[in-house]
Amino acid sequence: MKEYNKVKKDKKPLIAGLIFGIIFGFLLQKGGATKYDVIIGQLLLEDFTVLKIMLSAVVVGMTGIYFMKSMGWVELYPKPGSAGMNIIGGLIFGAGFAILGYCPGTIAGAVGNGYLDAAVGGLIGIIIGAGLYAAVFSEIKDGILKKGDFGNITLPELLKVNHWVVIIPLCAAIVLFLYWLETAGL
Protein backbone atom coordinates (compact mmCIF):
# COMPACT_ATOMS: atom_id res chain seq x y z
CA MET A 1 0.00 0.00 0.00
CA LYS A 2 2.85 2.30 0.89
CA GLU A 3 4.49 1.50 -2.43
CA TYR A 4 1.23 2.20 -4.24
CA ASN A 5 0.85 5.59 -2.56
CA LYS A 6 4.39 6.48 -3.52
CA VAL A 7 3.73 5.70 -7.18
CA LYS A 8 0.50 7.65 -7.07
CA LYS A 9 2.27 10.63 -5.56
CA ASP A 10 4.98 10.53 -8.21
CA LYS A 11 2.41 10.56 -11.01
CA LYS A 12 0.70 13.75 -9.84
CA PRO A 13 3.31 16.20 -11.14
CA LEU A 14 3.33 14.39 -14.46
CA ILE A 15 -0.42 14.74 -14.82
CA ALA A 16 -0.17 18.43 -13.89
CA GLY A 17 2.56 18.86 -16.53
CA LEU A 18 0.36 17.23 -19.14
CA ILE A 19 -2.60 19.48 -18.31
CA PHE A 20 -0.47 22.64 -18.35
CA GLY A 21 0.98 21.48 -21.67
CA ILE A 22 -2.45 20.96 -23.19
CA ILE A 23 -3.48 24.51 -22.27
CA PHE A 24 -0.14 25.90 -23.50
CA GLY A 25 -0.45 24.03 -26.82
CA PHE A 26 -4.04 25.17 -27.23
CA LEU A 27 -2.99 28.80 -26.72
CA LEU A 28 0.03 28.55 -29.04
CA GLN A 29 -2.16 27.13 -31.80
CA LYS A 30 -4.81 29.82 -31.32
CA GLY A 31 -2.10 32.45 -31.53
CA GLY A 32 -0.74 31.04 -34.79
CA ALA A 33 2.63 30.31 -33.19
CA THR A 34 2.50 26.68 -34.33
CA LYS A 35 2.88 27.82 -37.94
CA TYR A 36 6.13 28.09 -39.90
CA ASP A 37 4.85 31.09 -41.87
CA VAL A 38 4.13 33.07 -38.67
CA ILE A 39 7.52 32.29 -37.09
CA ILE A 40 9.53 33.02 -40.24
CA GLY A 41 7.37 36.12 -40.74
CA GLN A 42 8.57 37.30 -37.32
CA LEU A 43 12.25 36.64 -38.09
CA LEU A 44 11.85 38.49 -41.41
CA LEU A 45 10.24 41.35 -39.42
CA GLU A 46 7.04 41.18 -41.49
CA ASP A 47 4.65 39.73 -38.88
CA PHE A 48 5.08 40.55 -35.19
CA THR A 49 2.67 37.93 -33.80
CA VAL A 50 5.40 35.98 -32.01
CA LEU A 51 6.81 39.02 -30.20
CA LYS A 52 3.31 40.25 -29.32
CA ILE A 53 2.54 36.90 -27.69
CA MET A 54 5.87 36.71 -25.87
CA LEU A 55 5.88 40.28 -24.59
CA SER A 56 2.28 40.22 -23.36
CA ALA A 57 3.02 36.89 -21.60
CA VAL A 58 6.03 38.57 -19.96
CA VAL A 59 4.02 41.60 -18.75
CA VAL A 60 1.18 39.51 -17.29
CA GLY A 61 3.41 36.69 -16.01
CA MET A 62 6.01 38.99 -14.44
CA THR A 63 3.51 41.18 -12.60
CA GLY A 64 1.64 38.21 -11.17
CA ILE A 65 4.65 36.13 -10.27
CA TYR A 66 6.52 38.96 -8.55
CA PHE A 67 3.33 39.83 -6.67
CA MET A 68 3.00 36.21 -5.53
CA LYS A 69 6.66 36.18 -4.61
CA SER A 70 6.26 39.26 -2.43
CA MET A 71 3.35 37.48 -0.72
CA GLY A 72 5.63 34.48 -0.13
CA TRP A 73 3.49 32.16 -2.27
CA VAL A 74 6.05 31.25 -4.92
CA GLU A 75 9.80 31.04 -5.40
CA LEU A 76 11.77 32.14 -8.44
CA TYR A 77 13.97 29.84 -10.50
CA PRO A 78 16.28 32.10 -12.53
CA LYS A 79 18.70 30.09 -14.66
CA PRO A 80 22.45 30.50 -14.22
CA GLY A 81 24.32 31.90 -17.19
CA SER A 82 27.48 33.31 -18.67
CA ALA A 83 28.45 35.27 -21.76
CA GLY A 84 29.84 32.03 -23.25
CA MET A 85 26.58 30.17 -22.64
CA ASN A 86 23.97 32.74 -23.48
CA ILE A 87 25.57 34.66 -26.35
CA ILE A 88 27.11 31.75 -28.26
CA GLY A 89 24.31 29.30 -27.43
CA GLY A 90 21.77 32.00 -28.25
CA LEU A 91 23.27 32.61 -31.69
CA ILE A 92 23.42 28.87 -32.49
CA PHE A 93 19.81 28.56 -31.34
CA GLY A 94 18.85 31.58 -33.45
CA ALA A 95 20.38 30.04 -36.59
CA GLY A 96 18.42 26.84 -35.96
CA PHE A 97 15.26 28.85 -35.20
CA ALA A 98 15.40 30.40 -38.71
CA ILE A 99 16.58 27.28 -40.59
CA LEU A 100 13.89 25.12 -39.04
CA GLY A 101 11.18 27.75 -38.63
CA TYR A 102 9.95 26.38 -35.30
CA CYS A 103 11.33 26.34 -31.74
CA PRO A 104 11.31 23.46 -29.25
CA GLY A 105 7.88 24.37 -27.83
CA THR A 106 6.14 25.50 -31.01
CA ILE A 107 7.40 22.45 -32.92
CA ALA A 108 5.38 20.24 -30.58
CA GLY A 109 2.39 22.44 -31.42
CA ALA A 110 3.23 22.24 -35.13
CA VAL A 111 3.18 18.44 -34.90
CA GLY A 112 -0.30 18.63 -33.33
CA ASN A 113 -1.35 21.05 -36.06
CA GLY A 114 -0.41 18.47 -38.73
CA TYR A 115 2.86 19.90 -40.05
CA LEU A 116 4.87 16.94 -41.28
CA ASP A 117 8.15 18.80 -41.88
CA ALA A 118 8.09 19.48 -38.14
CA ALA A 119 7.19 15.91 -37.18
CA VAL A 120 9.56 14.08 -39.53
CA GLY A 121 12.48 16.51 -39.87
CA GLY A 122 12.63 19.08 -37.11
CA LEU A 123 11.62 17.00 -34.11
CA ILE A 124 14.26 14.37 -34.85
CA GLY A 125 16.84 17.08 -35.51
CA ILE A 126 16.26 18.70 -32.10
CA ILE A 127 16.69 15.32 -30.36
CA ILE A 128 19.94 14.71 -32.29
CA GLY A 129 21.17 18.25 -31.52
CA ALA A 130 20.45 17.85 -27.80
CA GLY A 131 22.24 14.47 -27.87
CA LEU A 132 25.28 16.00 -29.58
CA TYR A 133 25.38 18.67 -26.89
CA ALA A 134 25.33 15.99 -24.18
CA ALA A 135 28.29 14.37 -25.97
CA VAL A 136 30.42 17.56 -26.01
CA PHE A 137 29.25 18.96 -22.66
CA SER A 138 32.11 17.61 -20.54
CA GLU A 139 34.62 19.12 -23.04
CA ILE A 140 33.24 22.66 -22.91
CA LYS A 141 31.82 22.96 -19.39
CA ASP A 142 34.98 24.31 -17.78
CA GLY A 143 36.10 26.37 -20.75
CA ILE A 144 33.84 28.39 -22.95
CA LEU A 145 30.71 27.91 -20.82
CA LYS A 146 32.46 29.57 -17.87
CA LYS A 147 33.56 32.65 -19.86
CA GLY A 148 31.93 35.74 -18.36
CA ASP A 149 30.06 33.76 -15.72
CA PHE A 150 27.43 35.76 -13.80
CA GLY A 151 25.44 33.00 -12.09
CA ASN A 152 21.68 33.04 -11.64
CA ILE A 153 21.39 36.76 -10.98
CA THR A 154 18.25 38.76 -11.85
CA LEU A 155 18.09 42.32 -13.17
CA PRO A 156 16.90 43.85 -9.85
CA GLU A 157 19.75 42.05 -8.03
CA LEU A 158 22.25 43.26 -10.62
CA LEU A 159 21.01 46.86 -10.31
CA LYS A 160 20.58 46.47 -6.52
CA VAL A 161 17.05 47.90 -6.57
CA ASN A 162 13.61 46.72 -5.50
CA HIS A 163 12.09 44.52 -8.21
CA TRP A 164 9.17 46.92 -8.83
CA VAL A 165 11.70 49.58 -9.81
CA VAL A 166 12.53 47.35 -12.77
CA ILE A 167 9.08 45.85 -13.41
CA ILE A 168 7.05 49.05 -13.69
CA PRO A 169 9.27 50.85 -16.24
CA LEU A 170 9.81 47.61 -18.16
CA CYS A 171 6.07 46.95 -18.44
CA ALA A 172 5.55 50.56 -19.53
CA ALA A 173 8.27 50.21 -22.18
CA ILE A 174 6.78 46.94 -23.49
CA VAL A 175 3.27 48.44 -23.66
CA LEU A 176 4.60 51.49 -25.53
CA PHE A 177 6.52 49.27 -27.94
CA LEU A 178 3.41 47.15 -28.63
CA TYR A 179 1.33 50.30 -29.09
CA TRP A 180 3.92 51.58 -31.55
CA LEU A 181 3.81 48.27 -33.47
CA GLU A 182 0.04 48.60 -33.80
CA THR A 183 0.14 52.21 -34.92
CA ALA A 184 2.86 51.30 -37.45
CA GLY A 185 0.49 48.64 -38.81
CA LEU A 186 2.82 45.74 -37.96
Binding site: G61, I88, I92, C103, I107, G122, G129, A130, P156
Partner: peptide
Protein backbone atom coordinates in the same frame (compact mmCIF):
# COMPACT_ATOMS: atom_id res chain seq x y z
CA UNK B 1 17.82 23.32 -38.45
CA UNK B 2 16.59 21.10 -35.65
CA UNK B 3 20.14 19.96 -34.89
CA UNK B 4 21.29 23.58 -34.51
CA UNK B 5 18.22 24.39 -32.44
CA UNK B 6 18.58 21.45 -30.05
CA UNK B 7 22.31 22.02 -29.69
CA UNK B 8 21.94 25.77 -29.18
CA UNK B 9 19.05 25.42 -26.73
CA UNK B 10 21.08 23.17 -24.45
CA UNK B 11 24.17 25.34 -24.87
CA UNK B 12 22.35 28.47 -23.77
CA UNK B 13 20.37 26.57 -21.14
CA UNK B 14 16.87 27.14 -22.49
CA UNK B 15 14.62 27.89 -25.43
CA UNK B 16 12.07 30.46 -26.54
CA UNK B 17 9.80 29.27 -23.70
CA UNK B 18 12.29 28.58 -20.90
CA UNK B 19 14.44 31.65 -21.50
CA UNK B 20 12.23 33.71 -23.83
CA UNK B 21 9.09 33.73 -21.67
CA UNK B 22 9.66 32.10 -18.25
CA UNK B 23 13.18 33.42 -17.74
CA UNK B 24 12.57 36.96 -18.95
CA UNK B 25 9.43 37.28 -16.81
CA UNK B 26 11.56 36.37 -13.77
CA UNK B 27 13.99 39.07 -14.94
CA UNK B 28 16.86 36.57 -15.12
CA UNK B 29 19.93 38.16 -16.73
Amino acid sequence: GGIFLGFGARWSGGCTSGHGISGTLQLAV
